[in-house]
Design a binder for these strands. Sequence first.
DNA 1: AACTCGGGGTT
DNA 2: AACCCAGAGTT
Length: 356
Amino acid sequence: MELTDIVKPLLTWYDGNARILPWREDASPYRVWVSEIMLQQTRVEAVKPYFERFTRELPDIQALAQVPEDRLLKLWEGLGYYNRVRNMQKAARKVAQEFAGELPADYEQLLALPGIGSYTAGAIASIAYQICVPAVDGNVLRVVSRLTASRDDILKQSVKKRMEQQVGAVIPAERPGAFNQALMELGAMVCVPNGMARCDGCPLRELCEARKQGIVMELPRKTPKKARRLEDRTVLVVRDGDKVAIHRRPGKGLLAGMYEFPNVEGFLTDDEVLAFLKGRKLSPIRIQKLEPSKHIFSHIEWHMIGYVVRVEELEEMDASDWIFIEPQDTGRDYPIPAAFGAYTKYLNIKWGLDNN
DNA sequence: AACTCGGGGTT
DNA sequence: AACCCAGAGTT
């Protein structure tokens, strides 16, 4: 089987089965760019509502370059991998400066922009500018592994490079964007991971080497991932009247620049929490345990317990990095990661004058 | 080459 | 519980 044989049946299948997606309706370079960044390690269905809201508020590169960081993160809140959007803004500013606000129609220049790697550069170049370069993502690695019955580890960069070359060699000059998208669409809809591939509906079933050898389910091969590390944390809902304390995380590292409830490593007892607050010159009036919760990141697992603590704010309070916010301000202004989802409801409570 | 960086849907 | 998703950047 020559890989070039897949082109015609694949494109024919794609023409009849391509999903209708917002970024396909109007495939301007900017919209393709935004969609490709959002789609990194993120499913199509999860991206759709974010894409609509993001492009409505930031319809062009200029708007993206100028929006404040908190607002930018708020538009990304819940999508994860927040460096994606910070890098995209860096790139937008660079494009505004160096390319007169127009995304370059060149693979190497795209590749040089922050947040754009080989996949995304290939996707933008081929889909928005009809340039003949491959766009090899996880779908394509799986599809090519099976088509060629490759038992190589697709996480190795040498294997990825080889498959990029293999795909690059058969891209049809007339429809590079459609071809790349067709490979991904096939991987997402037919040649699926996790369980049975839908080979009966595959336009390439007669060409597929893995199917001939009966090893479709064995492919692709990947090195197993390292186990997640577990962390215990104590989350504090510190309330002064109706206001609740939040804190901005550092500009680097996990959840950089996002807002959170004050929290500390380990599972603290009531007394330890009270001591912690007094250490910051806050005077606790009442403390109550909240429900425990768990959040799973890709490489960390947080086990959390929570307390709501009512305090009186003293003048010499040593909590200058805490912001006491009104309940109604939360949702509007502060990007808060999903990890704190079990406790964010306490931001919106009108506590009132009761004894809580 | 190994590690960091989110969140959620599927199986 | 394990896998994986239209990956990229850093070490």
